[in-house]
Lab assay of single mutants.
Amino acid sequence: MEQATVKWFNAEKGFGFIERENGDDVFVHFSAIQGDGFKSLDEGQAVTFDVEEGQRGPQAANVQKA
Rank of each mutant, 00 (worst) to 15 (best):
Q34K: 11
A46S: 12
G44M: 04
Q45G: 07
A46Q: 12
F9T: 00
N10L: 05
E2A: 10
V63Q: 04
A46F: 13
D36N: 12
K7T: 03
Q3I: 14
E19L: 14
D42G: 10
E2F: 15
L41S: 02
D50R: 14
L41P: 03
A60G: 04
F27Y: 06
D36S: 13
K13A: 08
D42A: 14
G44A: 04
S31C: 08
G44C: 09
V51L: 12
G23V: 03
K39H: 06
E21Y: 11
N10Q: 05
R20T: 08
H29Q: 04
D36I: 12
G37K: 06
V51N: 03
V47Q: 01
K65C: 10
A46R: 14
G14F: 03
F9H: 00
V6P: 00
F15V: 04
F17N: 00
E19G: 11
L41V: 04
W8L: 02
V47G: 00
V28T: 03
E21C: 14
G16P: 00
I33F: 05
N10F: 06
V47M: 03
V63D: 02
F15Y: 15
V28L: 08
W8E: 02
F30I: 06
Q3H: 13
G44R: 06
R56F: 14
Q59E: 08
Q3T: 14
S31V: 04
E52V: 15
A61F: 10
Q3K: 14
E12V: 13
G44N: 07
Q3S: 12
G16V: 05
W8N: 02
N22P: 08
W8G: 02
E12S: 13
F38K: 08
D24F: 11
Q55S: 13
K39N: 06
E21G: 10
T5W: 14
E2N: 12
R56L: 10
K13L: 13
F30T: 03
E2M: 13
V63G: 01
D24Y: 10
V26Y: 04
G44E: 03
A66F: 12
G35Q: 09
A4C: 08
K7R: 10
D25E: 10
A60L: 02
G14L: 03
E53V: 13
E2W: 14
G54R: 08
A32H: 05
T5C: 14
S31P: 00
K39C: 09
E43V: 15
D24C: 12
A11G: 08
G37Q: 06
V6C: 07
D24G: 11
E53D: 11
L41N: 02
E21Q: 13
K7G: 02
V6L: 04
Q59A: 07
V47P: 01
G54C: 09
S40G: 08
V63F: 00
G16T: 04
Q55Y: 14
S40A: 10
Q55C: 15
E43W: 13
Q55T: 12
V6I: 09
R20H: 05
K13H: 08
D36E: 13
T48A: 07
Q45A: 09
Q34M: 13
V6S: 02
A61V: 14
E53S: 10
A4E: 03
M1E: 09
G57L: 04
N62Y: 07
N62Q: 05
K39R: 12
I33W: 03
S31N: 06
N22F: 11
Q59P: 04
T48L: 11
K65S: 09
E21D: 11
Q3D: 06
R56E: 06
K65N: 08
L41H: 01
D24S: 14
E12R: 14
N22Y: 11
A60Q: 01
F38N: 07
D24T: 14
W8M: 02
E12D: 11
N62G: 04
G37W: 07
G14I: 03
D50Y: 15
K13N: 05
V51I: 14
E53W: 15
G35T: 09
E52Q: 12
F9S: 00
G16I: 04
M1D: 08
G16D: 02
E19S: 15
G35I: 09
T5N: 09
A32I: 04
F15L: 05
G23L: 08
P58K: 10
M1G: 12
D24R: 13
V26E: 00
D25H: 13
P58T: 09
D50W: 15
V28S: 00
Q59K: 09
K65M: 10
F38L: 08
V47F: 03
R20A: 04
K65P: 11
F30R: 08
T5Y: 14
Q59C: 07
G37F: 07
H29M: 06
L41Y: 02
D50C: 14
A66H: 12
K7A: 03
Q45R: 05
D42L: 14
G37C: 10
T48K: 09
G16R: 01
F49S: 02
F38G: 05
Q45P: 01
M1C: 13
P58L: 12
F27L: 02
V28Y: 04
Q45C: 09
E53C: 14
K7I: 05
V51Y: 09
F9W: 15
V51P: 03
D36G: 11
Q3E: 10
N62W: 08
S31R: 09
E21S: 13
N62H: 09
K13G: 04
V47C: 05
F9R: 00
K65G: 08
G57Q: 04
E2K: 11
F27P: 00
D24V: 13
G37A: 07
A11E: 08
D36V: 12
F9Y: 09
G23P: 03
R56T: 07
F15M: 05
E21P: 13
D42K: 15
Q3P: 08
A60R: 00
K39V: 07
A61D: 02
